[in-house]
Amino acid sequence: METSVAPMDNKLQLKSKVVVTITDFGSELQNKWIELKRFKSNVFGIGSDRFRIYIDCEGNEIRHYLCLKHTDELSVDVQYDVFIIDKNQQPFARQRINQKTLDVTENYWSYHLLINKQDLINQTGSLLIDNTLSIAVDMTVHQKYRQSTDGCSWLRTCSSDQLFGVRELCDCRLIVGKDRHEFYASKLLLSCRSEVFAKMFTTDCMEKLSAEVVIDDIEPQVFEQFLRYLYTGRCDQLDDYCQELLVVADKYLVGSLKTMCFNWYSNKISSDNAFKTLKLLQDFGGSDDEELMAKTVDFISRKISSIVGQEIGQQIGIKTQMLNKIKDKIDKIIAKK
């Protein structure tokens, strides 16, 4: 690995780092990949930032996405290339991904197609080294807000983890649930993370005058996870509270948390939760979630009979238009057989 630092503009570069090696991939290519097959890199770092690449094999596609695991900064801009290393140690199927500014609350970035399965099969002789597929990245990270002044150097060098729960830096009280559980937070941080909180604290609302917010429709244990996410960009108990956090994220307009929740459902999709996922997408999803919507519809079409699907879907409130899409897809599959 070659890493270089350009201190004038805080640019850190990672050159040709092999992040994913998949052994016995020739055998993998013989599988139909009806079920999602996922491979992941080890966590790798550039400066204080930590990343992971995921490779998903499904149907006729090999896709990748980048996950930001940790950063100490307020903002990170990343540009990266993903490519396969061939037998001559040359890049193949290189893709350049330009990303917008990412803040500490946005962990997941969207999928991108790396290569079609058939194209990889056609190039097996030159792309598999000892039957192993090697995927590498070139990455440039532009890190902002590293400059600090003597007056607040401790605050600027603190990670969000350290700031969470520091009572001395809190200037508002949040009273949550029927039992009126109390949480304390920074109005500035809440306002930066949520447009809803920003309006509360900057307009002539009761919350601005009293520095107190009453929230009676969220359970305290869920709100604690939500508040921790606003500070740190992480959810340690997403498996336990994903649906509840999705509802909270929608209420407070925290789009990055909604994306995290939908990514969780995307990774966990099964016959048990496919219709539930579809209902959540219908109620809370947006244009950015069309890929997951299509994936969920396709899963239901392939895995669940149309009769059972119609009954379950109608019971939980799936719209007729969406059910008809599923039925049409199932009919096409049956016709091919």
Rank of each mutant, 00 (worst) to 15 (best):
L120H: 03
I135M: 04
S126M: 03
D103G: 04
G151T: 10
E224Q: 07
I334E: 12
D328R: 15
K100I: 09
L12Y: 10
N88T: 00
K11D: 10
K268Y: 15
D239F: 06
A198G: 15
F92T: 00
K279A: 06
N263F: 07
S110Q: 15
S75R: 14
K15G: 11
N31F: 13
I318W: 06
V222Y: 14
I121R: 02
Y231Q: 01
N263C: 13
S256A: 06
N122Y: 03
D72C: 13
F223H: 01
G317I: 09
I84C: 00
W33Y: 01
K279H: 14
N42L: 08
D272G: 10
L14S: 05
K319G: 10
V176E: 02
G285A: 09
I326V: 13
K329T: 06
C192D: 11
E106V: 03
S134L: 05
Q143V: 13
V214Q: 14
I22L: 00
N131Y: 06
I215Q: 07
D9H: 11
Q30A: 05
W109T: 14
Q315M: 12
L174K: 01
S301Y: 03
K258N: 09
L257S: 05
V82K: 03
L114N: 02
Y111T: 07
E244L: 04
D49T: 12
Y54V: 03
E2F: 14
L114Y: 01
S159I: 07
W264F: 15
S134K: 01
T296S: 06
V20G: 00
R302V: 09
P220E: 04
D239A: 07
C205S: 15
Q237W: 10
E182I: 09
A185N: 10
S110G: 11
Q315V: 06
I326L: 12
N42M: 13
N122D: 10
R63L: 13
T149Y: 08
L323V: 09
S27D: 13
K325T: 08
S194L: 11
F51R: 06
T202N: 14
I115Y: 00
D103F: 04
R96W: 12
E224P: 00
D24E: 07
K295Q: 05
